[in-house]
């Protein structure tokens, strides 16, 4: 009979469970509710990128709305998931680094470049721990270097090796996504790490890691790109140009308001203010359409990856660009 006594207690637990789940349901509905009389633009972003800045700043969505577009933000944890969603038409625009559009073009997908962001050459590079004696990549011969396959760090590492006159076999390649690499690096499980901001800034500030080679030292830009499927981009050229010009307005705002930007970003990313400050201060934010020069940069990445057999066969980057300016 004692057991019976407890039964009602479990019914209460179950009821509470369902109530909380109901609250969760309401929560998931709030961003999907607004009506769709205006044209919807679905944008995929990752934490801390240019879209995220435009999103946090808020003005972007308002200005787009005035021009008749409703912006729906979709956050992704990995570039791979973002590209899958973009390819299957669940997104209209997405941002990635410089390498994903190349690997995805090589695998036959129909993504095109809509726009490019300014150089990140000073905030991407090769990190070693504060106790490491390595001064250049040459000192890392035979050592373990973390990178993320299919990301800009792969190309950057190939470039750094080429500059030092080393071959790909001279180091041990450790493929880790940034989250896992960050742990591995802080624990000394890898000797060096090729990555971008905010990871670089975070490692520099919190672990006193040293940035011994940056992308600028090998004359690469490590840009971000805004991508869309070619069918969508062809049909929505006006949307694309509006998006780019409004995004540029947001970027200008970001360049002028570092204090506010740092405050907003550090709370959105739950990152130390010092880390965000470092990241923001060494970068000028800007976006533009595709230019011949940028296409050439991308073509060099494609050729380098093809030579290293990281992509199968040669590709022509210009085929993935609808129009170029200048």
């Amino acid at each position: 009979m004692k057991k019976k006594h407890h039964a009602w207690l479990w019914w209460i637990v179950l009821a509470l469970w369902l109530v909380v789940a109901g609250v969760g349901y309401m929560d998931t509905q709030t961003d999907a509710k607004t009506s769709s009389s205006t044209k919807t633009v679905r944008i995929g972003y990752q934490k801390g990128d240019i879209f995220d800045i435009a999103r946090i700043q808020g003005g972007f969505a308002k200005r787009m709305k005035q021009k008749g577009y409703r912006v729906v933000w979709k956050e992704f944890q990995t570039g791979a998931a973002l590209l899958t969603a973009l390819n299957s038409g669940k997104l209209d625009y997405g941002r990635t680094g410089n390498t994903p559009p190349i690997t995805s073009q090589a695998s036959g997908s129909k993504l095109v470049y809509v726009g490019a962001a300014s150089s990140r050459a000073n905030s991407s590079g090769l990190l070693v721990s504060k106790t490491s004696s390595a001064k250049t990549i040459k000192d890392l011969k035979g050592k373990k270097i973390a990178y993320s396959k299919g990301s800009s760090s792969q190309y950057l590492l190939l470039k750094l090796l080429a500059k030092a006159g080393m071959s790909a076999n001279d180091i041990k390649w450790v493929d880790l996504d940034p989250g896992a690499a960050s742990t591995a690096f802080s624990q000394g499980k890898v000797d060096a790490w090729v990555v971008w901001d905010p990871y670089v800034a975070s490692a520099q500030v919190t672990q006193n890691a040293k940035l011994i080679e940056s992308a600028s030292s090998v004359n690469t830009t490590d840009r971000d790109f805004i991508l869309a499927t070619s069918t969508y981009a062809k049909k929505h050229t006006k949307t694309s140009s509006t998006l780019l010009s409004e995004l540029e307005t947001s970027m200008e705002w970001a360049n002028r308001h570092h204090t506010t930007l740092i405050k907003d970003l550090s709370s959105a990313l739950s990152l130390d203010k010092k880390v965000v400050t470092k990241m923001v201060d060494r970068r000028r934010y800007s976006v533009s359409g595709m230019t011949q020069a940028i296409v050439k940069e991308q073509q060099d990445i494609a050729d380098t990856l093809a030579k290293a057999h990281d992509i199968s066969g040669d590709i022509d980057v210009s085929k993935a660009v609808l129009t170029t300016s200048q």
Binding site: K47, E75, G179, S186, P198, S270
Partner: peptide, 24 residues
């Protein structure tokens, strides 16, 4: 919850992992 989302406990933990936020 690691596939495009901005809510959920799984999101909280992968997000924390990205920035080495051990306590979260």
């Amino acid at each position: 919850e690691t596939v495009s989302t901005s809510s959920g406990i799984g999101y909280m933990s992968t997000n924390a992992q990205d920035f080495l936020d051990m306590k979260t």
